[in-house]
Amino acid sequence: MSRDVTVIRSGRGWQPLELAELWRYRTLLWVFLLRDLKTSYKQTVLGPLWAVLPPLLTTALFTLVFGVLLGRGNEPSAPGVPYALSTLCALLPWRLFAGCLTGIGNSLANNQSLLTKIYFPRMIFPLSAMLMPLLDAAVTFVLLIGLMLWYGIAPGVTLLAAPAFIGLALAAALALGLWFAPLSATYRDLGMAVPYLLNIALYLSPVIYAAASLQRALPDWAVTIYWLNPMACAIEGMRWSFFNSAPLPWGSVAGGAGLVFALLVGGAFFFRRMERSIVDVI
């Protein structure tokens, strides 16, 4: 029989992150993933096809509009890489980021009934919101490899770096989400703003175009600012690891990663600070 003493008192100001406690509750993440997996395709006709179709259809649409109808000026990031392939490669981290951010942003507001009735580390909610998008990304990864082989392009050794850029996209979503989630539980406006902001961010990130084409069109200082967008680093990083053609501006990527790290740590503490009062305001 464990005789650990739990002390409950009012905590003021900034709190430690209690990552050890979070680790003890890891079963919950697994159980939530199983729940989401088992329930997400219930009463749907297409079932798991829903993981396969959206990235393919989006790629087809972007290819049709930007690659075919609008023609040149939208060069793929790597010479010799078809537009569709390059776009699907960009959509992998982008859809992961967008899915996670939407999920995390609503994770507290959507779990109101759990939140107000039972205690477990609140950080579980944003973390579990990342699992299904991550699984989606894994499916896209397989599709992408398949499409590459179909086009007759073999992945190189740089592919080993791909997980790092997927991690960067995940970290960026979590970093922003940890700021958004407590705020959108209190101010429901944010829940509505996130999809809109994501729409804008899609155009500010090199998804339908390559960062290289910007570098020709924009002055240097503007390009520097552009690379501060962590998703630009993640997406171009993905292209680099898959196709290894254009060299990456490593300085900018390190800057983007540093920014994400700072936002992530700040967001985690912010979340811990806000989570204590969330039950009373949600």
């Binding site: 005789r3 650990d4 003493v5 739990t6 002390v7 409950i8 008192r9 905590g11 009062s277």
Partner: peptide
Amino acid sequence: EPTAGRAEIRG
């Protein structure tokens, strides 16, 4: 969370 005071729970 409480506003003030404390509680200790063993177990």
